[in-house]
């Protein structure tokens, strides 16, 4: 379960709209906002894939100017790698031609 820390930048006049929008997302925990339009939040998702999607979704909100990542912990995935599990491969993956 990856966990990340982000600063979401919005226009100060739109910050409340962004906060309302973030409140609808279960993966987002808002920790504070300031008068400059910065919103401090923690994102917690089931997978890295979902993390990417939620950041993308927030970035696409018309009132959001930038999602700045400051911290990412994916030690669950890393532990699975230690235990021998291979990280997900992109679909369409294949070995280079000619490799034995």
């Amino acid at each position: 379960m990856p966990i990340s820390g982000v600063v979401i930048a919005s226009l100060p006049s739109e910050t409340n709209d962004v906060l309302r929008f973030l409140a609808t997302l279960s993966q987002v925990e808002v920790h504070g906002a300031d008068e400059k339009g910065n919103i401090v939040a923690v994102l917690e998702t089931e997978s890295s894939d979902e993390m990417e999607k939620i950041i993308d979704r927030i970035s696409r909100d018309q009132n959001v100017l930038h999602v700045g990542l400051t911290y990412l912990n994916a030690e669950d995935e890393a532990e699975r790698i230690i235990q021998g599990e291979e990280p997900a491969r992109p679909f369409g993956f294949r070995k280079p031609s000619g490799t034995t």
Binding site: S4, V7, E29, H31, V40, V42, T70, Y71
Partner: peptide
């Protein structure tokens, strides 16, 4: 993670 992000602003 929250403290990290908060320290930036």
């Amino acid at each position: 993670a929250a403290l990290s992000a908060a320290s930036y602003v």
